[in-house]
């Protein structure tokens, strides 16, 4: 295999999961470096999952100062003012995460995502963008695609009880286990820009409504200059107007996107913790798959809505 063996300590700690994904995958995990930006509830869940899984390092990026709003669904921030006053979200979360697994190197970087350059992203194998604007997601995705090495790129958002994960693994090879043999498979992913600009008309009618609804909200926030998630019920009329325009522009009927869904999305200003656990769990699982090269990865959107309880994969790629 790759030479180095797991230490006795690693074998004991990771015993139960090595039985799921094997020692080879565990070794690859321990050599991987993950960048995480935007740490709210869902991303906090994700961070816990990969720190427990035993990745090599986790680098946190979130320069917001801790306010009472920040620990809403985020169990990494203890509600002790003395502990968090004057610290950024990334710094406080870093302290908590270190405790979960002393074998993982957790650290903090500062800076604005959209201005960080190629050299910065080159240090990572996995990049997770939580709660960012459409423009930032596009910019970081483009930067990652310029690197000579392949970086696994993910975005994740949770609004109320709904969530979206986007995945870009570029050209990705993985081992697929069939009953008698393991075969190598290859997938080609679209960039974020491509995946969110696909014309709506040809997309199958049964596709998760959350795909379209999220695009509407995303565009609304961008044109209004809002931060991600900064909407309220009072925005609903403008959001519905934008929906109408988008539907017309895409030659689809207006009831393509239920108003009730948009209303839920704009009016939920905090994350629903069970949804965070679920979406953060799926994202953790996908990142582990991508690093280990084992198992079919999710391509290329995942949606969860606690209302109907479904967790659905949608492949929406450029033609």
């Amino acid at each position: 295999m790759d030479g180095e063996e797991l230490t006795e300590q690693e074998t004991a700690l990771y015993d139960r999961q090595i039985r799921v994904w094997g020692a080879g995958a565990q070794r690859r995990l321990s050599k991987s470096h993950v960048l995480v930006s935007g740490i709210k509830g869902t991303v906090a869940e994700f961070c816990k999952n990969i720190v427990l899984a035993g990745v090599g390092s986790v680098t946190l990026l979130d320069d917001r100062f801790v306010t009472s709003e920040a620990f809403n669904a985020n169990f990494l921030i203890l509600p002790d003012e003395n502990a968090y006053v004057g610290k950024t979200v990334a710094e406080v979360c870093c302290d908590s995460l270190k405790e979960f697994n002393p074998m993982v190197h957790v650290s903090v970087e500062k800076g604005d995502l959209s201005t960080l350059g190629v050299e910065f992203f080159n240090k990572f194998d996995v990049v997770i963008i939580g709660y960012s604007s459409r423009a930032t997601k596009k910019a970081v995705n483009e930067t990652c695609r310029k690197l000579t090495k392949r970086v696994a790129f993910y975005t994740v958002d949770c609004r109320g009880s709904c969530g979206e994960i986007f995945v870009d693994l570029q050209n990705y090879k993985y081992a697929k286990k069939n009953p008698d043999e393991t075969v190598e498979c290859e997938l080609t992913f679209s960039s974020f820009e491509e995946a969110v600009s696909v014309p709506w008309k040809p997309i199958p009618r049964r596709t998760a409504k959350l795909y379209f609804a999220t695009r509407v909200i995303e565009l609304f926030e961008e044109t209004e200059g809002r931060k991600p998630g900064e909407c309220s019920v009072s925005d609903l009329p403008s959001v519905l107007k934008l929906k109408k325009e988008l539907c017309e522009g895409n030659s689809v009927s207006e009831n393509h996107i239920p108003d009730s869904l948009l209303e839920r999305l704009v009016s939920s200003n905090s994350e629903f913790p069970p949804a965070c656990a679920i979406i953060g769990g799926i994202l953790g699982q996908e990142v582990i798959k991508a690093i280990s090269g084992k198992g079919e990865p999710l391509k290329n959107f995942f949606y969860f809505d606690a209302e109907d309880g479904k967790g659905v994969i949608e492949d929406i790629s450029k033609a």
């Binding site: 074998t11 015993d15 139960r16 999961q17 090595i18 039985r19 799921v20 994904w21 869940e45 816990k48 999952n49 427990l52 899984a53 913790p273 069970p274 949804a275 965070c276 656990a277 679920i278 953060g280 769990g281 799926i282 953790g284 699982q285 582990i288 606690a306 309880g309």
Partner: peptide, 28 residues
């Protein structure tokens, strides 16, 4: 020994992510 222990001890495969997802569903 690792494999034999798993078989002999009836050790169940377990990862954090599945437990987190299931816990979320329980609360819902």
């Amino acid at each position: 020994l690792f494999e034999a222990k798993g078989i002999a001890g009836n050790i169940v495969h377990a990862v954090a992510t599945t437990n987190a997802i299931i816990a979320g569903l329980i609360v819902i």
